[in-house]
């Protein structure tokens, strides 16, 4: 692997890979391991292997997905992410009140997303959090464009219904 490519295109997306691995494995430790293994593999990959790679990000995301799935298969423990793990790693530094509010909302949305079927959950994650195009999502998850659209539509619909159903009081400024 070329050092410049690794330094400029692979290393900076480590947080994105981490979030994706976290979404699949549900464990911060597992996600860290996955990212480390993926980056090691990319770094050690021969030039012939990477010659045809055009979208490094999509390629790394695919490796992350495969490695994460392997991990979850070998462990029975599924997503039991502590509720505060999200805001604990958050770069933003809101006030204590906002922090609580954000944590509550984020935790609830996270739980709703986690309850989705895997394909819907991953499509929604890649689109709404990582902001990938439909084509990139199709490539990463190895599904068709139509499947991407259908799964995204279903995921959002379910989330919306559940949000309406389990409405909680969020403090809003007048």
């Amino acid at each position: 692997m070329n050092w410049t490519i690794f330094h400029q295109q692979i290393f900076p997306i480590r947080h994105k890979l981490y979030r994706f691995a976290l979404r699949i494995t549900g464990s911060a430790h597992e996600a860290e391991d996955v990212v480390q293994e993926v980056l090691e593999r990319v770094w050690k990959s021969a030039d012939e292997q990477t010659a045809s790679v055009q979208n490094w990000e999509a390629w790394c995301m695919t490796l992350t997905r495969n490695r994460s799935i392997d991990k979850t298969r070998t462990q029975t423990q599924r997503r039991a992410l502590p509720l505060d793990s999200l805001s604990a790693h958050s770069a933003a530094e809101p006030t204590p009140a906002q922090e609580t509010e954000l944590r509550d909302m984020a935790a609830r949305v996270r739980r709703l997303m986690e309850a989705l079927p895997e394909k819907q959950r991953l499509v929604m994650h890649l689109r709404d959090i990582e902001e990938l195009s439909y084509e990139e999502i199709a490539a990463v998850l190895d599904i068709t464009l139509d499947q991407v659209k259908v799964n995204l539509h279903r995921a959002r619909k379910t989330i919306r219904e559940k949000l309406l159903k389990t409405e909680i009081s969020i403090p809003f400024n007048p």
Binding site: L22, V35, W43, S90, V109, E167, F172
Partner: peptide
Amino acid sequence: RQEAELFRALRSEQSVQMPAGREMRIAPRP
């Protein structure tokens, strides 16, 4: 309300990072 909850949560998730100091190690083989 509900929409705000969702979009704020999504935005918040975008800032989740790998814990500092626990970034990956690559064997210094090169």
